[in-house]
Design a protein around this nucleic acid. Structure first.
Length: 260
DNA sequence: ATTGTGGCCTGCCCGC
DNA sequence: TGCGGGCAGGCCACAA
């Protein structure tokens, strides 16, 4: 599913439309427009406007427009981006690899030609105007120890729940967090505040390096733990039977031997 | 405020 | 072969 790695691929693809001017907006699904946004208001904000940039914070893709508005795109777990008919991600974990025309939830066309669209079968993504970035934590791909320490804070919540909380740290989803905690040998259920300074330092480093490595491999589903994310599987490192639990409301795989 | 839970969305896979 | 139930996770509303 789109976590920060996939959204970064979308962002890079969206760079292609920077400098182009919007000639048409298609938003056929009002559910997909968030925070009370209407197709009319959206049209007024982006029609005739030039795309100034393609930026990202966590899983949020942003396109500042020459009108002053900022277009915010979210992909949920099943949304994909297409730019000029090409999709940077052909296969998305947990989503269909087909492209049904009915799944095009949002589309921009440009005066210069080409288009940018979101294909989302399950409609878990969305489009918003002037997204409030201040509610997002620092981006996980570049998180520093200090940033991580303040994200963990004095929280008694499970470590995994805090890492998934986009308000505290932006960009990590279920697969990445499981991979990071497995690589860090940390129990997802550990209270977030229980990490000592050495563990905080190691975790911050692991977050950055795991994002980097999995980006190079091609996605958040390319972790070493991924093959074992099935009931009854064994730890790829020590062969102990993995725990399968629900933590932070998500299916969680971890090694009871190594992750403490 | 903090933390946990349930619901929403719907294609796909499994078992009957 | 068809059908129904369960599952997937990002996000938000809501409750304690």
């Amino acid at each position: 599913m789109p976590e920060l790695i996939e959204v970064e691929m979308f962002r890079a693809a969206a760079e292609a439309v920077v400098g182009r001017t919007v000639s048409r907006v298609d938003a056929p699904d009002s559910w997909f427009l968030k925070h009370g946004l209407s197709a009319d208001v959206l049209g007024a904000a982006v029609l005739g406007a030039e795309v100034l940039a393609a930026t990202r914070r966590g899983k949020l893709l942003m396109m500042p427009m020459s009108s002053g508005a900022v277009l915010g795109l979210r992909f949920g777990m099943t949304g994909r981006l297409a730019v000029d008919g090409r999709m940077p991600i052909e296969r998305l974990e947990f989503s269909s690899r087909r492209v049904d025309p009915a799944w095009v939830r949002f589309e921009l066309e440009f005066v210069e030609g080409g288009c940018l669209s979101i294909i989302d079968p399950r409609r878990l993504g969305g489009v918003e105007l002037d997204p409030d970035v201040s509610t997002l934590g620092p981006d996980a791909s570049t998180v520093t120890v200090d940033e991580l320490r303040s994200a963990l804070g004095r929280s008694a919540a499970p470590l995994k729940a805090v890492l998934l909380d986009q308000h505290r740290l932006a960009g990590l989803g279920n697969l990445l967090v499981d991979e990071i905690l497995w690589r860090s040998r940390l129990d997802p259920l550990r209270p977030a505040r229980s990490l000592d300074p050495d563990e905080q330092r190691a975790l911050a480093r692991s977050i950055r390096s795991t994002v980097q490595v999995l980006t190079r491999r091609g996605g958040s589903h390319t972790g070493d733990l991924q093959v074992a994310r099935v009931p009854g599987a064994a730890c790829p490192r020590c062969s102990a039977p993995l725990d399968r639990r629900t933590v932070g409301g998500r299916t969680t795989y971890s090694c009871p031997q190594e992750q403490t």
